[in-house]
Amino acid sequence: MSSRTTASPSTTGTAPADLGLVMRGVHLRHGDGAETVHALDNVDLTVAPGELAAIVGPSGAGKSSLLAVAGGLARPDQGAVTVAGHDMTVSSRRARTELRRRHVGFVFQSGNLLPALTAADQLRLPLRLGGRRDRAGRDPLEMLGHVGLAGKADRRPHQLSGGERQRVGIARALMTQPSVLLVDEPTAALDRARSHDIVQLLAQEARERSVAVVMVTHDHDVLQYCDTVYEMIDGKLATSS
């Protein structure tokens, strides 16, 4: 943790890779028998702190599956996954939940905010999910201001635009100061200008806070802001030209 917070932006590109996300020889199959889908086929991926990696590919290629495995939502059938040096493939669901709470941030398509919560409460929520001692984190109001939503702290999701919702989602994911941010199609519900804003925000946050960001997208327009671009086809991951 301390090495990450003391790292300056200029050194993040060379920071030790195991502080970010590392996946080695990961396989994931869904279903069984003739129905088996090889969602992840020998995937290797390293994303360093401060790096924004994009994954593109056709529908059903396994992009969401990769994020699920990277964040400990699903256990791979084979292979190693570490986040900031922590093994995300441990069998205990409880242990993976705790690792996720401490080290991983998720940003979902269309924000996936909780309808009952105001923007400020959306940001407080991650700090409330652990025990009392986990409550220290960033200041929600400051964070909202940081993503350009100062003055909208009391709005509920239905009172926010799609782009604003996505900003709240990104701010929420950053509240616990995660090592890795996993982002699934953040611009799917947004127009062109908003899409650029959001991905620029992600790139900026990745650098400023030395977070390893993996973003799945269909939107080739926004790849200019990404450090690395991977392409996923039929569960296989390859570097894109």
């Binding site: 964040g71 939940t97 709470r101 991983v104 979902f108 909780l114 929520l125 991650p126 999910l129």
Partner: peptide, 13 residues
């Protein structure tokens, strides 16, 4: 359902 899936993904036990 969806909301709880999000909570769980965010790290709620």
């Amino acid at each position: 359902k969806q909301e709880v899936a999000v909570l769980r993904a965010l790290g709620a036990s």
